[in-house]
Structures are given as structure tokens and as C-alpha cells.
Simulated assay, not measured.
Amino acid sequence: MKTCAHVTRSPLGPLFIAVEGAGVLLRLEFLKSRSLDELADLDATRGDELAWSERECAHVARELAEYFAGERREFGLACRPRGTAFQREVWTTLASIPYGATWSYGELAAKVGRAGASRAVGRANATNPISIVLPCHRVIGSDGSLTGYGGGLPAKRALLELEGALVAEPGAAGGQLSFTSVRPGSSARSSTGSSSAGRGAGRSSIASGSSSRAGSGARSSSGSGSAAAARRAASRR
């Protein structure tokens, strides 16, 4: 099956998109976390043809633009992240964390049904290949600390601020920040304080299919773009 890739710009820097089939999302990652060639290799099953195509990835870029503009709170994208059964279970659960909410690693572990396995769940969270759409940025330390993030802590902070989950305490020493968690079923706050639902086409879902890790033997194809064009796009901030 052909895998199509594209690099789109965002307020937080270039994002690498990879889709397959009827636009099913395989990967969405901050480009600064890996090289473009490394990401391209990760997202094609051995023997598949890799094509650079802005058109095939346009639906993902469009929903991301709406999200960053504050017009979308839920993504309507089918996702097929590649990983182990346990990793996919954790990533599926990430999709249930509401916009404007934060969960601790312990809470995520409990939701997965692995209470007491916070570290294992944290490792799976750290390997999430579909950033933002499967919102691993909404998982924080039990003490309210941001902990790590593949896109960098400034990006994680910016995403939580956009969603209204990060609240600065007036007069807090050293700029300490606290988090307001909105539990499932509660109304999430927008960055402007509105409780309206915002645009959304339904929550993203993880599609059924192979859960094996991607190989690195992809053949590159020009498609409607090229790797060189993608690199030029990635260089523009």
C-alpha cells in the first residue's frame, strides 16, 4: 500500500504527516525531533512505495490549521499508529482525554487498566507516533509538572495554553504554573473562556489493521511532490 507524506507548517514549527490508503493517519510528528529521512523511513512498510503528496495529506493539514486557530477541539481523523498491542492500547486511550483536560500518568495507567504500571504507560506515551491528534501532550506529572514531550516542553506548554488547560497562578513564585483538569464529561474551557464545543467532526479513532512496526525499506517516489520540496518546506518556519 502506498504511503504518502507531506511537511506542513504550524505555529510550533514544521510537522511531518504520513498517511496511507484512504487518508488514514500513520504519523504526525514535530520535524525537529527527527530528521526528514528518518521519519520517511519509519512510515513505510517494507517494500511499500513512498510518495510526497500535499494533496493526499491536505485533510490532516486542514484540521491542524483549524485546531491551531482555536476552531477545532476534536479531530475527525482515522489513525493507524504502528506499535505493539500494549502501545496501541495506551494510544487509543489518549484519544479519550478531552480538550482542555490533563491526566497524570497514574490516571492514564488506571484508564488503560494497568494501575500501578505508570512507568510502562509513560514509555508508551513517549513513543506515540501521532502527536496532537492522539494528545500525549495532555499527560503530565502527578505534581503538575510538564515532564517530557517529543516536540519539546515549550511546544507542550503552548498546546496546553491553547486548550486552556494551563493556568498561571497570580503571584506564584518563580512563574510556577498549575493545571486545571477537566474530567471526561465535563465542559472543556477554550483559550478565551468559552464553553462552546467549537468545530469538530467527531473524535479521532484508531483504525483496525496491522500493528507491526514499520520497516525501513521503502522505495521513494516523486508522487505529486518530492523529498527535496519537503525539505524546502521544512526549512521555512
Rank of each mutant, 00 (worst) to 15 (best):
A126V: 10
R88Y: 09
G116Q: 08
G150P: 14
A115F: 04
A85Q: 10
A115K: 15
G148F: 11
G106M: 00
L162I: 05
Y149G: 07
A155T: 11
S96N: 10
A124S: 15
V167R: 11
E89P: 14
V121K: 13
A109L: 08
K111S: 09
S142N: 04
L153T: 03
G171M: 09
A168I: 04
A115L: 14
P170I: 10
S131R: 09
R123Q: 15
V133C: 10
G151Q: 06
G122V: 03
L153P: 00
H137Y: 14
P135E: 11
S142M: 04
G122E: 09
V112T: 11
A101I: 00
L159N: 04
L146M: 12
A124P: 06
S145M: 00
R114H: 15
K156S: 08
A120M: 15
R138D: 00
R114Y: 14
L94T: 03
P154H: 09
W103V: 01
R114G: 12
W91E: 09
G151P: 14
I140A: 00
R119K: 13
E163S: 07
A85H: 12
R88A: 10
A115D: 13
Y105N: 01
A115I: 12
E89L: 15
S142R: 08
N128K: 09
G122M: 04
Y99E: 07
A155G: 11
A95L: 14
C136L: 07
L159A: 09
I97A: 00
A165Q: 06
A120P: 07
K111H: 13
V139I: 11
L160A: 10
I140H: 03
R114P: 13
A95T: 08
S96D: 13
Y99P: 00
A126Q: 15
G152C: 05
A124W: 13
G100F: 12
V167E: 11
S104A: 02
T127G: 14
L94F: 03
R157V: 02
V121T: 05
C136R: 14
A155N: 14
T127R: 15
T102H: 07
L159K: 07
A155F: 02
L162P: 06
L134C: 07
Y149W: 12
A158S: 07
A158Y: 07
E161I: 05
P98V: 01
A117G: 15
L134I: 10
S104E: 01
I97C: 04
R114T: 11
G144C: 10
G152E: 06
A115N: 13
R138K: 10
A173I: 03
A120D: 12
A109S: 06
Y99G: 02
W91M: 09
A168F: 06
S131K: 05
S145L: 00
E107I: 08
V167L: 12
P129Q: 02
V133T: 08
